[in-house]
Nucleic acid binder design. Structure first.
Lengths: 254, 254
DNA sequence: ACAAAAGTGTTGAGCGTACACCCATGG
DNA sequence: CCATGGGTGTACGCTCAACACTTTTGT
């Protein structure tokens, strides 16, 4: 860190890949750009770094401005920094990207929307290099489900094991065995802790409610590896409930 | 990413946590600062971002300037970005940190040195927030040994399985069973591939030489988890050869 | 009574650990 | 010949995938 003779200075911004699960799809918060460059394309929430504000505080501010909510409960972590010389055609900009995971919120409105991540990626209609940011964020989330309790951040403070399983199924894109998942989750120290309450789900036996445990990292991890060798249909959501009218049950496991 | 009315601009720098294994110790490249701030402390190699240069190119430049060598062979990956308002007392600076892993090079000279990472961390005599950068870099390296082939980046292109095991032992700080390690490494697809050559090591049966395989990520991973429950002596290096004169053999496994 | 969802039991395959043992070389 | 390090064989224990089965509700 040598102080150069000159004083080259750059714009520094923060962009947030905010993920949630909405209608059984992994979805990301974007807003349609009203101004050039990339007018009409979708952009991730972001804002410029300002004097005396921490990077993480800046990311939380970007998220708060776009969701219109207090986001102190959102789980947030740094993703990576993107600084290719011409990634912003106006001016050289170094952007620190953050991954945020949060439970479903009200629709944000005002040109902003939760859009399915896979569709948005496939459409190629993201501004700047936000397609890469989103892809990196999704991959990070997928990986972290294996060895951290980040899945609980997609849910309200109290949740059922089935709801937690639903997060894994949607983010990983394949179904999991309910029984084995239940055992694995409840027996991994610090992953979830029982509240003693139950939830009426409608049909079926009422499920116990849990909250996130103290342990951030899971040992041993859950593994998606063994499933990846199987074909995964990325084009359609993992339907967690049979389509109305169509009576075909979904196969379990292989 | 909204263009603010003002034009706040920041110094952007790149710092490199360059790791190697020297004398059975995980070591990091540092240079003694000749100028304030932090005169006399140890600093990581770094340089300022300049117009039209990629972040990764900047990191490689910093490494090259400090090692005096072509470092195209070094494995390099982004670590994290540090931007606390007063991390540099002179001017607000956002620093993108990179992790580099490379084989032992000649001593760099000129106030630069390879220093054992653990001692340097314990001494607290690093400049700026470089202690945190170093701690994060070491933890990243430790974690990546589990599920990537990054250990091969510490070695020359051709190496023995025992040398590879030595990297794991030094970085993780405990000994591994030689037989099981050999089996695990040679049977994990894409980790290493045989060259057909052998190396005369002096004593003992000559070891086969391998080179790094094509696969970046290991499935299934090696695991340090099972060892973490055991006590680990962080204060002294894992001696891979018995001390001269002291005839005590090191126990294997538990 | 039946369907559906929650949760438990059971079993077989695979993997990791521990450690015995053989191989190939230097002294 | 022995010592040393390279490399293989083997057995035990644990975990996980698969799936049968029981529990508890709504209709």
């Amino acid at each position: 860190m040598v102080l150069s003779g000159g004083d080259a200075a750059f714009r520094v911004s923060v962009d947030v890949v905010a993920l949630t699960v909405l209608d059984d799809r992994l979805s990301v918060l974007v807003s349609r750009r009203a101004e050039p460059p990339y007018r009409g394309r979708w952009g991730l929430p972001g804002c410029d770094l300002v004097h005396d504000e921490d990077l993480e505080a800046t990311a939380r501010r970007a998220l708060r401005e776009r969701t219109g909510r207090a986001t102190s409960s959102a789980r947030i972590e740094q993703l990576a920094t993107y600084g290719a010389p011409r990634r912003d055609p106006r001016r050289r900009t170094v952007s620190v990207a953050w991954l945020a995971v949060l439970p479903v919120l009200a629709e944000p409105g005002g040109g902003r929307a939760w859009k399915p991540a896979d569709r948005l990626l496939a459409s190629g209609r993201l501004a700047f290099d936000h397609g890469r940011l989103l892809a990196d964020g999704v991959e990070r989330a997928r990986a972290k489900l294996e060895y951290s309790n980040i899945a609980t951040a997609f849910l309200e403070p109290e949740f059922t094991i089935a709801a937690l399983r639903g997060i894994y199924e949607v983010v990983w894109g394949h179904r999991l065995d309910a029984g084995n998942f239940h055992r694995k989750v409840t027996r991994t120290d610090g992953f979830v802790e029982p509240t003693g309450r139950r939830r009426q789900t409608g049909r079926g036996r009422p499920a116990e409610l849990f909250r996130a445990g103290a342990e951030e990292s899971l040992h041993p991890p859950l593994t998606r590896r063994s499933f990846e060798q199987r074909s995964v249909d990325l084009g359609s959501p993992v339907r967690r409930h049979p389509a109305r009218g169509a009576g075909h049950g979904l196969v379990r496991g292989a």
